[in-house]
């Protein structure tokens, strides 16, 4: 694997590779000492230009369990604050010895830009409203654990598709693996030209629940009401929130997912989030193994204990 910037460039075969490798690391993570030396001597720089505790910790844990050295670059207390350009920052970190950058940024495309300037490998850890490929990979892994092959499965994605990098990566991954994807959102939260995407689109959640194998809920942000995209979170919740009544209509075995952090009571009711068929904490747990697989495929020599 060269860089991991988008799901599209990984493709179905690339996703399969990551899934297979993740099985190996899931086994490693079950050991009493969940650590290998596959990336000993490699340096992974975690560049979180936008705050994110869960994704940063997940990547840093993954890198350490592979034996890599981890440098943490914090934008809040960095040279960027002193006016250094992004490119100079990247070149400096590369000069210190970065083998890979894990990049989170509030602007779409920054990982792509860094990849064009640097010889180091780049993992997109979420860029603006563009993509969050490792989230999609861990979601696919979680789904496969429960459902096996995703081919022909009906996955309903609910919420703010327009502003969601998770949605873009997941739609690309789910469709690449042959799932049927249905998007459910108010018209204001759908992207331009969504009609050209290989998905079905509806504004009616109730009509989409009966044949769903998976309901994937996205986080809704308060600021969407300030931008006149929604009248209120209350109205959103009434139309698009997954409450117990709606969850009860799901067929047996259907899964409920959420990338976190959740707004309980808005896009998902508290009791639904804690239901047995909600696999939300499992998603987080799989995140470490998936990110180990990605870093290993990118930087490793192929030998787990090299």
């Amino acid at each position: 694997m060269n860089h991991l910037l988008t799901i599209d460039e990984l493709g179905a075969d690339g996703i399969d590779d990551v899934m297979r490798t993740t099985d190996t690391f899931a086994e490693v993570n079950r050991r009493p000492i969940p650590k290998v030396q596959a990336l000993r001597g490699k340096t992974v720089v975690s560049c979180f230009f936008e705050d994110s505790t869960r994704t940063r910790l997940s990547f840093e844990t993954a890198a350490r369990r592979l034996g890599a050295d981890v440098m943490t670059f914090s934008a809040a207390s960095s040279s960027l604050k002193k006016g250094e350009s992004l490119r100079d920052t990247v070149e400096t970190l590369e000069a210190i010895g970065a083998d890979a950058f894990v990049v989170r940024h509030r602007s779409a495309g920054v990982p792509t830009q860094i990849a064009s300037w640097s010889r180091a490998k780049v993992v997109n850890a979420g860029d603006g409203q563009h993509e969050h490929p490792t989230q999609a990979l861990l979601d696919c892994y979680t789904l496969r654990t429960h459902l096996g092959d995703l081919h022909g499965k009906q996955i309903v994605v609910v919420g703010d598709i327009k502003h969601s990098r998770v949605a873009r990566s997941n739609i690309a991954a789910f469709t690449a693996l042959g799932a049927k994807v249905k998007l459910v959102a108010p018209a204001t939260l759908l992207p331009a030209s969504v009609g050209e995407w290989p998905v079905e689109v509806t504004h009616n959640l109730d009509g989409a629940l009966d044949d769903a194998d998976v309901v994937y809920l996205l986080r809704i942000q308060q600021e969407r009401t300030d931008q006149a995209l929604l009248p209120s979170l209350r109205e959103y919740s009434a139309g698009f929130g997954l409450d117990a009544k709606r969850a009860a209509r799901l067929k047996p075995g259907a899964l409920i997912m959420h990338p976190g952090p959740m707004n309980r009571g808005v896009e998902i009711a508290a009791d639904v989030a804690d239901a047995p068929n909600a696999v939300i904490t499992e998603q987080v747990a799989n995140g470490v193994a998936v990110r180990m697989a990605v870093l290993f495929l990118m930087l490793g020599s192929g030998d787990l204990n090299a």
């Binding site: 993509e131 873009r168 331009a192 030209s193 969504v194």
Partner: peptide
């Protein structure tokens, strides 16, 4: 430009 590319790239578009 707001269109298929802005949607794909996740870049805010102007119609």
């Amino acid at each position: 430009h707001e269109g298929a590319w802005s949607a794909k790239l996740g870049v805010p578009g102007q119609p």
